[in-house]
């Protein structure tokens, strides 16, 4: 029995050491990517190409999800608020929840599963088929040429996608409550504008989505670059990207919210 306990503790220790070590490797890789980003700035075409894959191709899922999330928020908010006779505050409810939380977080979760996994799979496959080795044998640094442009495209497109998500959500809420249910249009917008603050709500949401963009793409490129060069290796890395970045988004969201809205109602 004590033997089993000892081996259990050993197991825990092993996992902790393993994950701390991996975190270290990932941070070093992240620094390397930042350090080698000069090529992405000088040859911005490389980033534009990747923006198409990370940004433009994520648009549909972001627009549709944003619209539906906003419509549901409008419907649920109306149901609850009308009990207190304050259904005109539904605009405030929809806008604040979207701009502060749901926009950045849900858009980032969608982004992680749409673009993050694609980045991991692509880099992992390039590694498995020796394309990265071939590149480095051609005296071209794969981190600068392949990884950095993908990283920056993610960092750029994430806040834009989050903003599009929020706008679509507000529009969805407007559709349901004002157009379908018939809440007064004027009070919908004016109450919203009264309580949504540029500095505290919109800027903070924007900053959040920037952090999420960095986190998701950093995880995605690392998992891809680090993947064992086999089919199972790549598929495992893709799954890990989605899981790890979703957890990272939610964890970061809590930390950032705690910092941003501390002391403010």
């Amino acid at each position: 029995m004590p033997k089993r306990i000892v081996s259990g503790i050993q197991n825990i220790g092993h996992r902790v050491i393993e994950s701390v070590w991996r975190l270290g490797v990932a941070s070093r890789f992240f620094m390397l990517v930042l350090f080698k980003s000069g090529t992405s700035v000088r040859r911005f075409n490389l980033v534009i190409r990747e923006l198409y894959f990370t940004g433009v191709l994520s648009l549909i899922i972001i627009v549709v999800s944003g619209l539906f999330v906003g419509m549901v928020l409008g419907l649920q908010g109306y149901e609850t608020l009308q009990k207190y006779g304050s259904e005109s505050a539904v605009g405030t409810l929809v806008a604040l929840s979207l701009v502060r939380e749901l926009g950045p977080v849900v858009a980032a979760l969608l982004f992680a599963s749409r673009a993050g996994s694609a980045i991991t799979a692509e880099i992992g496959l390039m590694k498995a088929t020796e394309q990265l080795s071939a590149m480095s044998m051609m005296a071209v640094d794969p981190v600068a040429r392949v990884v950095a442009p993908r990283f920056w495209s993610g960092v750029i497109s994430m806040p834009l996608l989050a903003a599009i998500f929020s706008v679509m959500g507000v529009f969805g809420g407007y559709l349901v409550t004002v157009v379908f249910i018939g809440v007064d249009e004027g009070s919908f917008w004016s109450q919203m504008q009264d309580s949504v603050d540029f500095r505290f709500d919109i800027m903070n949401g924007f900053i959040k989505s920037c952090y999420f963009g960095v986190a998701v793409t950093a995880i995605a490129v690392f998992e891809g670059y680090d993947a064992p060069p086999t089919a199972e290796g790549v598929s495992g890395a893709t799954t890990r990207t989605v899981v790890t970045s979703s957890l990272a988004i939610l964890g970061l969201d809590f930390i950032l919210t705690a910092f941003m809205f501390r002391g403010v109602s």
């Binding site: 806008a95 929020s166 507000v170 540029f198 924007f206």
Partner: peptide
Amino acid sequence: TMDLWVGLFVVMGIAALMILSLKVGNLNV
């Protein structure tokens, strides 16, 4: 074509930020 789409995407994103600031938020007030 790719440049066009990326351009459209960026314009959409910036427009969304503007709408959030001006229409949803109180930057104009």
